[in-house]
Design a protein around this nucleic acid. Structure first.
Length: 187
DNA sequence: CAGCCGTAGGTGA
DNA sequence: TCACCTACGGCTG
């Protein structure tokens, strides 16, 4: 499977994102475009670059409710994939769900009775989400707060930024995204 | 209210 | 294949 990278500039606190695409769709996205090995070449297909760049840019500008890019699910299998797909299809823009609620909704943890175990496992799965942003793992929060996020210290800032974009959180003074009042319908 | 701990899936070597 | 590391949450002191 040929994989190529596309770097997309964003207003996120973490800076540009790195998106890996295959013929099937987006297989990996990463908020922190580290030097992930030289074996993967940059994408040179203008159509793909336009689609990926355009839709992510529009989503982050508040002009689109989801990136709506095709996802290559090959990096997530079994229960992991079920949970990610449940999140993608059941939790809409501007809504949040707790780790425990998503666990129950996915139906993957039927036999688990240990309190908190299913929720923690979902946290693991979110942390291992191969396509953050496309699968809105930022909408999954802890029962008693915002929960965590990958990518070190800047990670939680990215989560807060995305939740602010979707009108879940109120913007801070350094908010650099689209007009929140307009996006929230308070015009 | 602030820790502590159980438990299982992902990831890198 | 193995060891290590968590993006939680209920319970205890």
């Amino acid at each position: 499977m040929s994989t190529t990278w596309i770097t997309v500039g964003t207003p996120l606190p973490s800076g540009p994102m790195r998106i890996a695409v295959t013929p099937a769709g987006v297989v990996t996205s990463d908020y922190l475009p580290g030097d992930t090995g030289a074996s993967v070449p940059a994408c040179t297909d203008p159509a793909k670059i336009d689609a990926v760049t355009g839709r992510i840019t529009e989503y982050l500008a508040g002009r689109r409710r989801a990136p709506d890019l095709p996802i290559d699910w090959s990096r997530a299998g079994g229960a992991h994939r079920v949970v990610l797909r449940t999140l993608l299809t059941e939790v809409p823009y501007g809504r949040t769900i707790t780790y425990g609620e998503l666990a129950a909704l996915s139906g993957v943890f039927e036999g688990i009775t240990e309190p908190g175990l299913a929720a923690r496992t979902v946290g693991q799965m979110m942390a291992a989400n191969p396509v953050p942003l496309l699968v809105p793992c930022h909408r999954v929060v802890a029962a008693d707060g915002i929960g965590g996020f990958g990518g070190g210290r800047v990670g939680i800032e990215v989560k807060r930024w995305l939740l602010t974009l979707e009108g879940v959180l109120e913007p801070t003074l350094d908010w650099n995204g689209p007009d929140w009042a307009e996006a929230a319908g308070r015009g």
